[in-house]
Simulated scan of single mutants.
Amino acid sequence: MTAGEPTIVATSGGLRAGGRTRVEFDALVHHAVELSGVHGRRPRVMYVGTAIGDAEHFTARAVEAGRVAGFDVTPLHLFPMPNVADIEGEVLAQDVVWVMGGSVVNLLAVWRAHGVDAVMRRAWESEVVLSGVSAGSICWFRGGTTDSYGPRLRPVTDALGLLPYGNGVHYDSDAGRRPLVHRLVADGTLPAAHCTDDGVGLVYRGTELVEAVAEVPGKGAYVVRREGDTAVEERIEPRRLPPV
């Protein structure tokens, strides 16, 4: 199954503490699976942990979260070498790709070294749902704000650019994100930026933002646009997803 058109779910959420497991997939991941259109079999979800160096303990947690959710989770590892011979074939066989957070700068460098950037574009064009959290959100845009270089937030402007916007993640939980996004949009470093509070996701069909959704009540999504030499922010009220 495919989503019917290129689809991205870019989030600042999707994971929660489990009951009998350390991690469970929350409503944003389930929504990405729903958008894939899969039915009549277990959904195929690829977990990509490049941004945290393919940490094996978290890969195990993601696979276990998939078991609890009823998904077949396939990890894609690039450290110390790709764990599959045919990266493109494995990615294109999925219903959903979920990219973990961490260092977006390191993720982009490693993906480019292995040609995964081009594979992800082909997957998007082939209507595999692309999704992720934090670094796994920023990577689909032109860029955003990151602590990949150190504790001081800095811009990254060379992300994959499937979506022609900037991206602000953890908008409500990291005090430095909002003012930096405003400054980068105001001075033209980033184009208009789409931003999410923790627990919120943005759904794109093609390059159009069609909906904001949330797994946590009271949270928001935002569009920051340049007007003259200043940035103007508009809040988008997300639709609350049913709990899972």
Rank of each mutant, 00 (worst) to 15 (best):
R205K: 06
H30V: 12
M120A: 07
N106T: 11
C195Y: 04
A60F: 09
A231D: 10
S12L: 13
M81S: 00
G101E: 10
P151C: 08
S131V: 01
F71T: 11
M1D: 13
G66H: 04
E34H: 15
D174I: 11
L107F: 01
L180A: 04
A62F: 14
G19K: 14
R112P: 00
R67I: 02
G70E: 03
V224D: 06
V200T: 11
D117M: 03
A55N: 14
P151I: 05
H31M: 13
T230N: 08
T2Y: 06
L78N: 00
G49F: 01
R122L: 07
T59G: 05
G228N: 07
G220E: 09
G161L: 10
L78C: 00
V119Q: 02
T21R: 03
R22N: 05
G136Y: 03
A62I: 11
E56R: 06
Y149S: 01
R42E: 14
V224L: 08
P243K: 14
G166N: 11
S126E: 06
I138P: 14
R235G: 00
S36A: 13
V232N: 12
S131F: 04
H194T: 09
A159D: 15
S148Y: 09
H170W: 08
V116I: 11
V29A: 04
H30N: 13
D172M: 03
D174C: 08
S12D: 07
A175Q: 08
T145E: 10
V133W: 12
V91E: 06
E56W: 06
G53N: 10
I52H: 02
G143F: 07
H31E: 14
A231E: 12
E56H: 09
D229Y: 08
T157E: 14
G115W: 01
Y222L: 15
M46N: 12
E227L: 10
G70C: 08
H39A: 15
F58S: 00
R121A: 15
R122C: 04
H39Y: 12
L180D: 03
L92E: 03
V116N: 05
L28R: 04
H31S: 07
G150S: 06
F71W: 13
L15P: 02
F58V: 01
R22C: 05
G188Q: 08
G102M: 13
P164L: 03
A118K: 02
A55K: 07
V29W: 06
H182Y: 12
L202R: 13
R239N: 13
D172L: 06
T230G: 08
R42D: 10
D229W: 04
P243D: 14
T21F: 02
G150N: 04
E237G: 12
D54E: 03
F71H: 13
G102I: 14
V45P: 10
R154M: 15
V216F: 10
V23T: 13
P82A: 05
T207C: 14
L180R: 07
P191E: 05
M120G: 02
G66Q: 12
R225C: 07
G132C: 10
